[in-house]
Amino acid sequence: MSSSSFPNPVRVLRRGERDEEIIKALKNEGFDINACMQCGTCTASCLSGRWTALTVRKVMRKAALGDSSVLESSDIWMCTTCYNCYDRCPRDLKVTDAIIVLRNLASARGFIHKNHRKVVQILAKTGHAVPINDKIQQVRKELGLPKIPPTLAKYPEERELLAKTLFQLAPEEGDEQ
């Protein structure tokens, strides 16, 4: 039967066209992509799917086929990581974690939203994704709390050490999406 019988034929990738890195990364995380039977429980449980074009079942299918377009699409970034799909998957696949794996690959290839990159840069600089500011220092004082919380905000020399040593992927690498 020719694929034209179907309105939306699955694009089957030939050997060599497959992005083996996707398949390998998921396998390394203990995610058996072939165990997915495409039942769609993930899509049906998906909060973001009510608002956006994210269809988790399709993301899983593309990933299983090694279709690299899954990394380039913004769909994987629409997940709020609510873990409904992970909790409900009848095959006990860690679906949300798989999305995180795909996001890691996408980020390493430079597919990351500029706002997200900004958050990473702020974290590298201040030790916090949401750093303290003057206004909140004043609020803290009015509440009877120390103006600067006892976090890294108080220990600048530790902050530098952390950015230098603990960042396994530098915040400024790659192109912006």
């Binding site: 970034w77 995180i100 890691n104 980020s107 990351i112 974290l123 396994q168």
Partner: peptide
């Protein structure tokens, strides 16, 4: 969300 997605 953001940091674990960027670099686990």
């Amino acid at each position: 969300g953001v940091i674990r997605s960027f670099s686990e």
